[in-house]
Simulated scan of single mutants.
Amino acid sequence: MNIDEDTSKWLGCPTPLEMYQHQCALLEDELIQTEAMLRKARANVAGLVQMNDLLATGKASAEAALRQALERNSAMNDEAPDNMSFRPIDLVTGQRDHLLRENQRLLMELKVLRGPHP
């Protein structure tokens, strides 16, 4: 029995050239997949940049509207007398209190006009 005999051709083992060619084919496939992923990533980045621009524009317009509202509010507070309020609940509360005092005053006048009860 001869153990030193080269059996690589018997088993169908590839030659070094065939191994290199196979490795090159694998690398080419990887490169094609990587290029596809890179194109997709570039498209995603372009979309994100566009979304960021839209958000920045929206943010700028919202900040401008906020500044205008704050300026109007400040102008209203500067123009309003100290005892006036622009909140509707404060206006209604003030009217209620005024009507209550007026009602009490009229009741007192009525009692005075009617005189004491016997």
Rank of each mutant, 00 (worst) to 15 (best):
L70C: 15
E102Y: 03
G115F: 02
K9P: 04
Q68D: 13
E63N: 11
Q33F: 11
H98N: 12
A56G: 00
G115V: 00
S61F: 14
L55H: 14
L48W: 05
Q50S: 05
E79M: 13
S8I: 13
E35L: 11
A41H: 15
T93V: 01
Q95H: 13
A64N: 15
T15D: 05
M108W: 08
A64E: 15
N52P: 01
L99M: 15
T34P: 00
T15M: 05
R39F: 01
L26Y: 04
T34Y: 02
Q33G: 03
V45C: 14
E63L: 04
E28D: 10
A65Y: 12
R42I: 06
K111E: 02
Q68P: 06
E71C: 07
I32S: 11
L55V: 12
P16H: 08
Q68H: 12
K59R: 10
L26W: 08
A36D: 08
V45K: 10
E35F: 15
A46Q: 10
E79S: 13
D82H: 08
N44D: 14
N103P: 03
R87T: 09
A43P: 01
G115S: 03
D82V: 06
K40G: 02
M19R: 06
Q21C: 13
P116I: 04
H98C: 12
M1P: 01
K111Q: 05
P88Q: 03
A80D: 07
D4R: 14
E109G: 00
T57P: 01
L70K: 15
G115N: 02
P16I: 07
M84H: 04
L70T: 14
L106V: 05
A75Q: 08
K111V: 04
Q33T: 14
P14Y: 10
R101G: 00
L26D: 06
V92S: 12
